[in-house]
Structures are given as structure tokens and as C-alpha cells.
Computed example of a mutant assay.
Amino acid sequence: MKSHDERIASMSFASVYPHYLTKVEKKDRTKEELHRVIEWLTGFTDEKLQQLINEKVTFEQFFNDADLNPNSNLITGVICGYRIEEIENPLTKKVRYLDKLVDELAKGRKMEKILREA
């Protein structure tokens, strides 16, 4: 399991971001909606997000810079075969939070539900 966590930590956010974007756009969601979800989770503005992409930061650096939303612990369920609530590695859990939000966006969930407002 450790190698899985290390792989996630060293992966560049910039390498995964285009996949997030493609996934949501294929389902008629927008880049703006994706950025809103990312900002909700991390506190990153569009400018900061673009800077992190340009710098090709790892997920570890990405989440070290993030100001994680206090409601992020409300993100539950299964993503990539893992139950989020049971993930012990804090960084892997944060990456899966992001994966889950992107997944919910692509599945057409209402923004208020994705952002845990309702």
C-alpha cells in the first residue's frame, strides 16, 4: 500500500488535471465548474491553480499549499475502489476527495450537493 501512496504523492497535478477537465467536459460540465469545485476543496483561485499547473507541482506540494475546506470530511463513498472514510494516508485521502468531487461533477450532481452545502 505504501508504494501506492508514494506514487500518488509524487504524481504531478498538471499531469492529472487535463483528465479531470476531459471527464467533466464530456458530461457537459464546464472548466469553470471544475475550478469552482477545486477552489471549494483547496482554496485555490484560478490564478493560483494555473500557477501550480505551470510549476508542475506534485500532489504532495499541491495539498501542502492547499487550505482544505473544513467540510471536506463530509466527502464519503467509494472512489477508485477505495472507501474514502477508510483511507489512512492523509495525502491519499485528500487526492481521493478531489477525485470524488470531480466524479460527482461529471455525474451531473447539483453543485450545492457537491460543495456539501445542502
Results as ranks from 00 to 15, higher is better:
M1N: 05
M1Q: 06
K2S: 05
K2D: 04
K2E: 02
S3W: 06
H4A: 09
D5E: 11
E6Q: 11
R7N: 06
R7S: 06
I8F: 09
S10H: 03
S10L: 03
M11S: 11
M11Y: 07
S12N: 11
F13E: 00
F13L: 02
Y17V: 08
P18I: 11
L21D: 08
T22L: 11
K23W: 10
V24P: 03
K26C: 13
K31F: 00
E32I: 13
L34G: 00
L34Y: 01
H35D: 15
I38S: 01
L41K: 02
L41E: 02
L41G: 01
T42I: 02
T42M: 02
G43H: 07
G43A: 11
F44S: 10
T45Q: 07
D46E: 03
E47C: 01
L49Q: 02
Q50G: 07
Q51H: 07
Q51S: 04
I53L: 15
I53M: 13
E55V: 12
T58Q: 03
F59L: 04
F59C: 01
E60Y: 14
Q61M: 15
Q61I: 14
F62C: 01
F62Q: 02
F62T: 00
F63S: 09
D65A: 15
A66W: 13
D67Y: 09
L68G: 08
N69T: 08
S72F: 05
S72Q: 06
N73R: 05
L74H: 03
L74E: 07
I75Q: 05
I75Y: 05
T76M: 07
V78C: 09
G81M: 10
Y82D: 11
I84T: 13
E85C: 11
E85F: 10
E86Q: 14
N89L: 09
L91Q: 01
T92L: 04
K93R: 02
K93P: 00
K93G: 00
V95C: 04
V95Q: 03
Y97R: 03
L98Q: 09
D99M: 12
D99E: 14
D99W: 10
L101N: 04
E104V: 06
L105N: 02
K107C: 05
G108I: 01
G108C: 02
G108H: 00
K110E: 12
M111K: 09
E112Q: 14
E112R: 15
E112W: 14
K113S: 13
E117Q: 15
A118D: 08
A118Q: 07
